[in-house]
Write a protein that binds this DNA or RNA. Structure first.
Lengths: 147, 147
DNA sequence: ATAAATTGCTTGCACAAGCAAGTATCAGCA
DNA sequence: TGCTGATACTTGCTTGTGCAAGCAATTTAT
């Protein structure tokens, strides 16, 4: 219980801080998340639902997020003949460039607000514990990639 | 970085699940958070800003949250002569009753979605690591109570 | 072959949250 | 006392999110 509360606190405070930093840089954290997941995916594309799962957002939320990002020319939607209901979100060159730009800034933020405060010795245990939690909540069908 | 991502995942998935459960029970998680912090405070009251700090919410967000909860008669605002700018949020009997009602349900949810998946051996390390993170982000002025 | 059920994404709607600006009160100092 | 600045909360506005419903394409069953 207290551990859960600590988890919530740690998350909220860190993420809020990072979010503000990113926003100040002109790229909301959610946008960054999308870009990085796409950049890491083969061909820089992901089905909408897979992407929604990866960044833990509702389908409708993702639809609008991609709407905005498409307007900014960071991603494109690509429909495929193979299943004409579905759509891929594809990262654009501009999206890639933006990701390159923001990446070091974001890393610095993480270093400053998170990594600094983690005892090196804690990391493996922390990571292992969190992974187990995730695996448990998700069940065998989970889409969390522990890359 | 991956550890941070794991933190984010674990938090988001668990909290989202709990939130849906609570909402189904008729008490949003945020309301529960407010109630429990008030119930734990001396005289069941807390200054608005302290409460905002405790549940990690912006002052404006808390104002409206308390507005809603006041309408539901779970809390009251009480202004004091000592400093007429400030206000206390005070838990009402109805609020306490609601907390009693929801508490076991929430605990069961935590057990099911969180505690089950945490290796008992992990807990101390996990808690310690998270606490260090929190302390680091917060600085010496932090308002996180590790009760 | 065709109707029914399912899937994949998109819209209508309502709501909660944050930022910036506003208001009232208090503290410090000439 | 009377100003100046800080504090504590509240309000106006904008935005992002989720749920429920909708639409189109696809699969399943008859």
């Amino acid at each position: 219980m207290n551990t859960l509360r600590a988890l919530q606190w740690a998350h909220t405070v860190i993420l809020r801080t990072l979010e503000r930093e990113m926003e100040a840089e002109g790229l909301p954290l959610a946008w960054f998340d999308v870009l990085i997941h796409l950049a890491e995916a083969p061909d820089g594309q992901l089905r909408m639902q897979d992407l929604a799962g990866s960044i833990v957002m509702s389908p409708s939320g993702l639809t609008r997020l991609i709407d905005r990002m498409e307007k900014a020319d960071y991603v494109t939607r690509q429909r495929t003949a193979e299943d004409r209901r579905g759509a891929y979100a594809v990262i654009t060159p501009k999206g890639k460039a933006e990701l390159e730009r923001i990446w070091p800034i974001h890393l610095r933020g993480i270093e400053q607000h998170f990594a600094t405060n983690v005892d090196d010795a804690d990391v493996p245990a922390l990571y292992a514990a969190l992974s187990r939690i995730i695996a448990g909540v998700e069940g065998p069908t989970g889409s969390y990639a522990s890359d």
